[in-house]
């Protein structure tokens, strides 16, 4: 399974980079989403995969049993998901505003700061 996830991370990352190298604005943003998904998955997998048991302390127990999934990467990814959504929303609205002001279809037309 780890090997499979590793391949998936590679595919998502590669697809994200390919989309970001494009000069079409929408592709750039979708590429950004792909990249953050790929990285979240990377953190998740790098910490080790445990099937099924969420890191919740059973009632009656004082501590988490060792067979549970690792809580730390989950906390990190949780933060990352939310932050990347913030970045995405801002980027999307920024492009929206940019193309309302400067109707350019090509990112390379946005080379200079003065228009």
């Amino acid at each position: 399974m780890n090997t499979l996830i590793a391949v998936l991370v590679g595919v998502l990352f590669g697809a994200g980079i390919y989309l970001m190298l494009s000069r079409t604005p929408v592709r750039l943003i979708i590429g950004l989403v792909f990249l953050s998904n790929a990285i979240n998955l990377l953190i998740f997998d790098a910490a080790g995969l445990t099937r099924g048991i969420p890191p919740i302390i059973a009632s009656g127990a004082e501590k988490l049993a060792r067979s549970h999934a690792d809580p730390l990467p989950q906390a990190l990814i949780l933060t990352a998901i939310v932050i990347s959504f913030g970045v995405l929303a801002f980027a999307l609205v920024l492009f929206n505003r940019t193309f309302k002001t400067l109707p350019a279809r090509d990112l390379s037309d946005l080379k200079a700061t003065d228009t």
Binding site: A6, V9, V11, G14, A15, I17, Y18
Partner: peptide, 19 residues
């Protein structure tokens, strides 16, 4: 596409190494 494929391959191998 070539650059993207290379970066994807690198990520895959990094995940495997990390594991």
């Amino acid at each position: 596409a070539l650059v993207a494929a290379a970066s994807g391959a690198l990520m895959t191998s990094l995940v495997l190494v990390a594991h």
